[in-house]
Amino acid sequence: ARYHDEKKIIKDILKDKGFVVEVNTTFEDFVAIISSTKRSTTLDAGNIKLAFNSL
């Protein structure tokens, strides 16, 4: 259940930042955007990776 909650937070962060994940978006770029907000401090690193892979 935590993964789904965190995935929603991640999607909200991406929307707030106006960031669109494209086919050529690197995981490093994705993490940089997510990490640039205070909301990301509680996110699990594994869940961030899973969310990236699912987009």
Rank of each mutant, 00 (worst) to 15 (best):
A1E: 12
A1P: 04
A1C: 03
A1K: 15
A1T: 14
R2P: 01
R2H: 08
R2Y: 06
R2W: 02
R2A: 02
R2T: 11
R2G: 06
R2S: 09
Y3F: 12
Y3D: 03
Y3G: 02
Y3R: 02
Y3P: 00
Y3V: 04
H4D: 14
H4N: 15
D5G: 08
D5N: 11
D5Y: 14
D5F: 14
D5H: 13
D5T: 14
D5S: 14
K7Q: 07
K7V: 13
K7T: 09
K7P: 00
K7W: 14
K7I: 15
K7L: 15
K7N: 08
K7D: 04
K8D: 07
K8Y: 12
K8C: 07
K8T: 09
I9S: 05
I9G: 01
I9T: 03
I9H: 06
I10R: 00
I10V: 02
I10A: 00
K11V: 13
K11N: 15
K11S: 10
K11P: 00
K11H: 08
K11C: 06
K11I: 14
D12M: 06
D12C: 04
D12F: 07
D12L: 02
D12N: 12
D12W: 03
I13D: 01
I13T: 01
I13S: 00
I13Q: 00
I13V: 05
I13N: 00
I13F: 03
I13C: 00
L14K: 04
L14T: 02
L14C: 08
L14Q: 01
L14E: 00
L14A: 03
L14P: 00
K15F: 06
K15D: 13
K15T: 08
K15R: 11
K15N: 10
K15P: 01
K15Y: 07
K15Q: 09
K15S: 10
K15M: 09
D16P: 03
D16F: 07
D16L: 06
D16C: 04
D16R: 08
D16I: 05
K17I: 06
K17E: 10
K17F: 06
K17S: 07
G18H: 07
G18E: 09
G18T: 03
G18K: 06
G18C: 09
G18I: 00
G18D: 11
G18Q: 07
F19M: 05
F19G: 01
F19Q: 05
F19R: 06
F19Y: 08
F19L: 05
V21L: 06
V21I: 10
V21S: 03
E22V: 02
E22Y: 01
E22R: 10
E22H: 11
E22T: 15
E22K: 13
E22L: 03
E22A: 08
E22P: 00
E22G: 15
V23N: 15
V23D: 15
V23P: 15
V23H: 15
N24P: 03
N24D: 14
N24Y: 03
N24I: 01
N24K: 09
N24V: 04
N24T: 11
T25G: 02
T25K: 03
T25P: 01
T25L: 01
T26S: 12
T26D: 07
T26L: 07
T26M: 04
T26F: 02
T26K: 15
F27R: 02
F27Y: 15
E28C: 08
E28V: 01
E28M: 05
E28S: 07
E28R: 06
E28D: 11
D29T: 05
D29L: 00
D29M: 04
D29K: 04
D29E: 13
D29H: 05
D29V: 03
D29Y: 04
D29W: 06
F30C: 00
F30W: 04
F30R: 02
F30G: 02
F30M: 01
F30Q: 09
V31I: 08
V31N: 03
V31Q: 15
V31Y: 10
V31R: 11
V31G: 03
V31A: 12
V31P: 02
V31F: 09
A32V: 02
A32P: 00
A32L: 04
A32Q: 13
A32H: 07
A32F: 05
I33W: 02
I33V: 15
I33R: 00
I33S: 04
I33C: 09
I34L: 15
I34F: 03
I34V: 10
I34C: 07
I34E: 00
I34A: 02
I34K: 03
I34S: 04
I34H: 05
S35H: 10
S35G: 12
S35F: 11
S35D: 10
S35I: 03
S36G: 08
S36E: 08
S36Q: 13
S36P: 04
S36H: 04
S36I: 04
S36A: 08
S36M: 06
S36W: 00
S36C: 10
T37C: 15
T37G: 08
T37Q: 09
T37I: 04
K38L: 08
K38H: 10
K38A: 10
K38V: 08
K38R: 11
K38E: 10
R39Q: 14
R39D: 06
R39M: 12
R39A: 07
R39T: 09
R39F: 09
R39K: 14
S40D: 10
S40F: 10
S40K: 09
S40M: 10
S40E: 09
S40C: 05
S40R: 06
T41C: 09
T41Q: 14
T41S: 14
T41G: 11
T41Y: 09
T42Q: 14
T42P: 07
T42A: 10
T42D: 15
T42K: 13
T42Y: 14
T42W: 06
L43S: 01
L43G: 01
L43K: 01
L43A: 02
L43V: 01
L43I: 06
L43W: 01
D44Q: 06
D44P: 00
D44V: 02
D44N: 06
D44W: 03
D44L: 10
D44K: 12
A45V: 09
A45R: 12
A45D: 13
A45I: 12
A45P: 15
G46S: 12
G46E: 12
G46Q: 14
G46N: 10
G46M: 10
G46K: 15
N47A: 00
N47M: 06
N47R: 02
N47L: 00
N47W: 02
I48G: 02
I48W: 02
I48F: 05
I48V: 12
K49D: 02
K49Q: 07
K49H: 09
K49A: 13
L50H: 12
L50E: 13
L50T: 14
L50Q: 11
A51Q: 06
A51C: 12
A51V: 13
A51T: 12
A51M: 08
A51H: 11
N53H: 13
S54Q: 11
S54V: 02
S54R: 08
S54P: 00
S54I: 13
S54K: 07
S54M: 10
L55K: 02
L55F: 12
L55V: 03
L55S: 04
